[in-house]
């Protein structure tokens, strides 16, 4: 009898989740379409003056991506909770926090990363300044995993409840605000030629902290949700 290594369990989980995303790829496109629509609507509502759009470009892209992420957040544990897979994860002999970290990583890869890839294009729709483009990408690369990790803890807390959408938004938004402030702050600083490294480093520090703590909190919250 072999109970298998933790590495094998993690890779099986990652492979399964990626296959699932591929089989439901229609759903996976939703956040990208959502962000695209939001950003395409801004010039229509505010008028096409490049100066005005340029001023708000980074902030709009940031907010659109944050909301798109929020849209996809509830799916993180929902189906696993409903079909009993989550129980099986909890009962496995491997550290639950590590398995959940894998799930969150796959979720980030499939929901946030495609958006980051298209973010420069989305910025172009709003005349985003060249100097800000790569700061925006760097800020998003640091901020979106942070949002996924914070969001995962809140999802884990609310997954046992029916219709938890509103509660989830209420829990998550105050925690998302500092991330938004630092991320958009870095872009704004870059735009007016101020040093932008400090807010990025703050984001990086918070990301490191969340990488370590969020999976543990997530595991504890899920055990509570399941009991």
């Amino acid at each position: 009898m072999s109970s298998g290594s933790t590495l094998a369990a993690c890779s099986a989980l990652v492979r399964r989740d990626l296959t699932l995303v591929w089989r439901r790829r229609g759903d996976a496109l939703n956040p990208i379409l959502f962000a695209l629509i939001v950003i395409a609507l801004f010039p229509l509502a505010l008028g096409p003056e490049p100066q005005q759009l340029q001023r708000i470009a980074a902030g709009v892209v940031f907010v659109a991506l944050l909301l798109a992420g929020l849209l996809a957040l509830d799916t993180l544990f929902r189906s696993d909770y409903e079909d009993g897979s989550l129980e099986q994860l909890v009962l496995s002999s491997h550290p639950l926090s590590l398995l959940l970290a894998c799930k969150i990583a796959v979720h980030w890869l499939t929901t946030a990363l495609p958006l980051i890839v298209v973010a420069p294009l989305l910025g172009e729709l709003l005349h985003l300044a060249d100097s800000v483009r790569w700061v925006l990408v760097a800020a998003l690369l640091l901020a979106t995993p942070l949002l996924s990790l914070i969001g995962a803890v809140c999802v884990a807390l609310t997954v046992g409840m029916h219709r938890s959408g509103m509660l989830l938004a209420l829990l998550v938004l105050p925690l998302y605000v500092p991330v938004l402030i630092f991320g958009a702050g870095a872009c704004n600083a870059a735009q007016i030629g101020l040093p932008y490294l400090a807010p990025l480093l703050w984001l990086a520090a918070a990301l490191v902290l969340a990488l370590v703590l969020a999976p543990l909190a997530c595991a504890a919250a899920l055990r509570i949700s399941l009991s």
């Binding site: 699932l20 994860l89 002999s93």
Partner: peptide
């Protein structure tokens, strides 16, 4: 049952084997 409806029976079991041995 803890089965994923989008996966085949075999894929479900392969995942279980990876997770539990």
């Amino acid at each position: 049952a803890g089965l994923k409806h989008e996966l085949t029976a075999l894929e479900n079991l392969r995942f279980a084997a990876g997770l539990h041995g």
